[in-house]
């Protein structure tokens, strides 16, 4: 069922075509969260089947794409849980292999070493479609475990205890990973999107 939606009959046919057209977008989101092409393909295929089969029950109170992405999120989590052992081992490896500190950001006395960039009004940036593309590119550059943990928390909106449980890591490790993910995303966004927004030093 890769690459095409299940055929739908009669009145559902245009909606089924609309669902099939969402496939590239869904694949992008699934890859971003799962960081594994085969798992992402499976999650998207299962979503397409579930969406086409569920079309008669779709009440159109939300946009079709929103409804389909809702299904996709469940299918992503199914894949996540099926491959949890591998995901958890990879997360442990990331924690063991990195020893990032905040040192370059701060002086010995604990003050910031340099002025941060002011990212300005979020709505203004978010209204520009390219920003989300840049954010996706930055997420893509994160090590897989950091991207997974960040997106579980922020995109799938799991609570932190749920994130720790899904990743099978301790809460301390979970916080460290979320912290590192945010640090790296900030760095990446500042280098690619917000460059030039640095505020003036204050006295």
């Amino acid at each position: 069922m890769r690459g095409a939606a299940m055929p739908a009959s009669g009145a559902d046919a245009p909606a089924a075509r609309e669902i099939a057209a969402l496939r590239p977008m869904m694949l992008g989101l699934a890859r971003l969260q799962l960081r594994n092409d085969a798992w992402a393909e499976d999650a998207v295929s299962e979503t397409l089947v579930a969406a086409v089969e569920g079309l008669p029950g779709f009440d159109r109170r939300s946009a079709l794409a929103t409804w389909v992405v809702g299904i996709l999120k469940h299918k992503i989590m199914d894949q996540f849980r099926r491959n949890r052992r591998e995901i958890s081992l990879e997360a442990q490896g990331t924690l063991a292999g990195e020893d990032e500190t905040l040192e370059p950001l701060f002086l010995e006395d604990g003050h910031r070493a340099a002025a941060p960039l002011d990212w300005g009004d979020p709505e203004q940036s978010l209204a520009r479609g390219q920003f989300l593309a840049v954010l996706q590119a930055c997420l893509d550059r994160l090590p897989a475990p950091l991207a997974r943990v960040f997106l579980l928390r922020e995109w799938l909106e799991f609570s932190t205890p749920e994130v720790c449980k899904e990743m099978q890591i301790t809460s301390t490790n979970c916080f460290v990973m979320l912290f590192r993910a945010r640090m790296r995303l900030r760095e990446c966004l500042e280098a690619t999107w917000f460059a030039g927004e640095r505020v003036q030093p204050h006295g």
Partner: peptide
């Protein structure tokens, strides 16, 4: 002031991640 800017940036990041949906 600098940390207040960073606080706003953290909120921005959360908001942005939740907008990845179409």
């Amino acid at each position: 002031e600098w940390c207040a800017i960073v606080a706003r940036n953290f909120r921005f990041l959360s908001t942005a991640a939740r907008r990845l949906d179409p």
